[in-house]
């Protein structure tokens, strides 16, 4: 083989190797959880149920120790995802089963319930939570662009039946928070937890707080 031919082959192999590295890197970077569809089969004018749970550690996957939200799909199965399809201009009945412990929060303003109707904590009216009292606040469910903020009161960290691995069951220690809100027009609306619960990360805002699928995601409102 001539010198030129050898150089061409080497160049091609190098290009293929670079291409593979870029492909794998992009595939990793663009990985996102599945979108759970709660919009298909929806009848106009009827409300939609959105059932969520928050856990202190997901227990599986590439970050088993990370705190996370889970969502129940239409078949009643818990899915590890924070991307949800919801129908536009529809009332959403939200139930959040909060299994994580709480703490004071960085900004107590996030203890205020805003932008939703009929917020209840374990069957009692919920308007404002002082995170310096009781078990504090574990997480929030907040959609800034819709003005929605609901604090999720923490469970006792030393509870006997404290859930360590998702999905947690109704028999384990939890708080039940319910409320309703109305979806706006078609679009994608970012939601997140405002408690810096990414423990081990500076200011608590790394890791699960910066990764879609754990403590933030998108309401994908569809027609």
């Amino acid at each position: 083989m001539s010198r030129g031919a050898r150089a061409s082959v080497a160049g091609m192999l190098f290009a293929i190797a670079v291409g593979l590295v870029v492909f794998v890197a992009m595939a990793f970077l663009r990985t996102e959880p599945p979108t759970v569809d709660l919009a298909s089969g929806h009848q106009a004018g009827k409300p939609v149920d959105l059932t969520l749970q928050t856990v202190g550690s997901i227990g599986y996957g590439i970050h088993p120790e990370w705190v996370s939200y889970l969502v129940k799909d239409q078949q009643g199965k818990w899915i590890h995802s924070t991307l949800w399809n919801l129908p536009a201009h529809t009332t959403v009945h939200v139930t959040i089963l909060q299994y994580d412990s709480g703490s004071p929060i960085r900004n107590q303003q996030r203890g205020l319930v805003t932008g939703v109707g009929g917020a209840m904590l374990n069957g009692k009216r919920l308007t404002n939570v002082n995170s310096y009292e009781g078990n504090g606040i574990g997480h929030t469910f907040s959609v800034p662009s819709l003005g929605i903020n609901v604090p999720l009161v923490g469970v006792a960290g030393n509870a006997k039946d404290f859930c360590n691995v998702a999905p947690c069951t109704m028999q384990e220690a939890h708080n039940t928070v319910t409320f309703t809100f109305k979806t706006p027009g078609v679009g994608q609306y970012h939601w997140q937890c405002f408690v810096p619960c990414g423990l081990g990360y500076l200011y608590g805002n790394g890791g699960p707080m910066q990764t879609i699928g754990y403590m933030d995601g998108l309401l994908k409102v569809v027609a």
């Binding site: 004071p104 504090g136 810096p196 200011y203």
Partner: peptide, 13 residues
Amino acid sequence: TPDANGADGGYYL
């Protein structure tokens, strides 16, 4: 003064 350690501390960088 924000806490550098997340919600309930335990890891002080």
